[in-house]
């Protein structure tokens, strides 16, 4: 009897503390949510991408037509180009900027915490609709930016009327919200052991050498993290274009996510919109994969040493 009980208990304990059990107990919330509120909707949208579903009438199966249509849709091709330009300009600028400010703010000096908060403010409220309206105002014909241009003896720029310029306010708005990347960089910078710096100083390295041979490699895992996160969110940016430029002029800022939204909720072309988001998912996975793949070459890991 006793023995049996103990055996049972031990057995139960074994099961309870088995890695598989522990893993699934802790991962359970995500797995349930993922199956229920992500996987089912995703499959539904995959199904719709092969139909001509338009919300009001029931759908019919049209096979690959939606996908074929994508490659003839000039607005779609332009939106891919525009989004890529946006990602390739805004992400590096934002990261360089965030790193620069984070580096400046590592100095042990009075007020650093205050400064850091100051620079975090744009990220903190950047998502609000009011800020987007303010941004529009800053770049308007009589706005702050143009007034500065005039006082510097330059020509006024029609930011939202010039196809080549319209992207700039959006990129700047994204760069302006560099706060969260900065905070993460700042944390990374603090973690670099001072012994490295001291060793380098003894070897007679100058500031630039220290930065490129010590700071950057030590920071590389964090750069990777920020790069991946910012690339993903840049690909999906929607609100800025939706509120500030509405995709114009002449589709110069018609971001992928905005075009998907318009196809779905403005033109009611749900099937086509679903196909578009699947293509987007594939493009993004590919790029993330490439970043991770390349990271093996440039990310310096302590464990590897």
């Amino acid at each position: 009897m006793m023995n049996d009980n103990i055996k049972k208990k031990m057995c139960l304990n074994k099961i309870l503390h088995n890695d598989n059990t522990v893993g699934y107990v802790f991962a359970a919330p995500f797995i349930i949510g993922f199956l229920g509120f992500t996987i089912i909707p995703i499959l539904v949208s995959l199904y719709y991408s092969f139909t001509n579903y338009n919300l009001t009438t029931s759908e019919t199966w049209i096979g690959l037509q939606n996908y074929a249509r994508l490659f003839q849709d000039t607005r779609f091709l332009k939106s891919v180009r525009v989004t890529l330009i946006y990602v390739l300009t805004s992400v590096p600028l934002k990261l360089i900027f965030a790193l620069f400010i984070a580096y400046l703010l590592t100095k042990k000096s009075r007020g650093v915490t205050f400064y850091r908060s100051l620079y975090y403010v744009p990220s903190l409220i950047g998502g609000s609709i009011a800020v987007a309206l303010v941004w529009k105002e800053l770049f308007s014909t009589r706005g702050l930016i143009n007034s500065l241009f005039i006082s510097a003896g330059l020509e006024k720029v029609s930011w939202f009327g010039d196809q080549k310029m319209a992207m700039i306010p959006l990129v700047l708005m994204s760069v302006w919200q560099f706060g969260s990347s900065m905070i993460i960089f700042a944390a990374g910078l603090k973690e670099i052991s001072p012994t490295y710096y001291e060793a380098a100083k003894i070897d007679g390295a100058n500031k630039r050498q220290i930065f490129s041979h010590i700071t950057l490699p030590c920071l590389s895992p964090i750069i990777l993290y920020n790069l991946v996160m910012q690339t993903i969110s840049a690909f999906m940016s929607f609100t800025q274009a939706f509120v500030i430029t509405r995709g114009g002029p002449n589709d110069a800022t018609n971001f992928y996510a905005l075009y998907v939204y318009n196809q779905a909720f403005k033109y009611y072309d749900m099937g086509y919109a679903s196909a578009m988001s699947w293509v987007m998912l594939i493009i993004m996975s590919l790029i993330t994969f490439l970043i991770f793949k390349s990271s093996k070459r440039w990310v310096f890991s302590e464990a590897g040493e």
């Binding site: 996510a257 998907v260 909720f265 919109a273 988001s277 998912l281 996975s285």
Partner: peptide, 10 residues
């Protein structure tokens, strides 16, 4: 990476 707009309806 999933665009939120598209799983909105389902």
């Amino acid at each position: 990476m999933l665009p939120a707009q598209i799983i909105l309806i389902p």
